[in-house]
Write a protein that binds this DNA or RNA. Structure first.
Lengths: 119, 119
DNA sequence: GGTTGACCTGGAGTGGACTCCAGGTCGGAT
DNA sequence: ATCCGACCTGGAGTCCACTCCAGGTCAACC
């Protein structure tokens, strides 16, 4: 049952230590365990959860919604249908981002082509 | 040579009137023409530029960089190579976003599948 | 036994991009 | 005439997601 120091978690997750503390403060991360000196020692589970958080965050989910998701996770297995719903909505949202991005990228590329053509 | 009222531009571009004023204030939009009463009357060119702005903004370009681009455009045709460079860098950046999004989406979908499997 | 360096806390500050507000001007409809 | 709605200005306020700071603890290496 390995534990991780803050520095290791920073290394592994890409979150800054300030962000980790912030996430704990707002309850996105449940109270992390401490050693005798009061320093954080993250569990394997924490790391896993942070991976999920990172994925949701990097796909543009606002913190408020991640908090809702965190609450569902904590509330137990009976919330799984709600979690599916939340993730599916987010997936739709990501799908929209993707479509939008592809379209816009085309516009940018056309613009570049145009610029090239007038050189 | 048609002109557009603020309300029409809001309608056409999707920017709010406050955002339009803000963009003009910071110089992202060149001083827009006014009628006798001092009200804005946007030109066809303004609309075109706003389309470009919208595309760049919606693909995540920060305002500071859009400002640099605006300056290049204003500086004349000799900056076209620089504009190409800027847009290509941005295109790369968009490409990165896309790849990232696709990967993360897979993770989310796997998570959904997992949740479905435990129901 | 003194100096690092990694960590702690609560709370303040930052940056980016808007968004809102008070107080005012027009021109047209009732 | 007056009322309304669309617009104006300069400047203040908001929101989000961090990020930084001051002042402190602890363990370990030299």
């Amino acid at each position: 049952m390995s534990v991780y120091t803050p520095a290791e978690v920073v290394e592994e997750t890409g979150f800054s230590i300030d962000t980790l503390r912030y996430y704990e403060k707002i309850g996105l991360l449940e109270r992390v365990g401490r050693n005798a000196a009061g320093q954080r020692r993250f569990s394997q589970e924490d790391i896993g959860w942070l991976g999920t958080i990172k994925c949701l965050r990097d796909t543009g989910m606002p913190i408020a919604q991640m908090l809702r998701f965190a609450e569902l996770v904590r509330a137990g297995d009976h919330t799984i249908p709600d979690r599916i719903k939340l993730l599916e909505e987010h997936d739709q949202q990501v799908q929209g981002q993707l479509q939008n991005l592809v379209e816009r990228q085309q516009y940018i590329r056309n613009k570049i082509s145009y610029y090239r053509s007038v050189l």
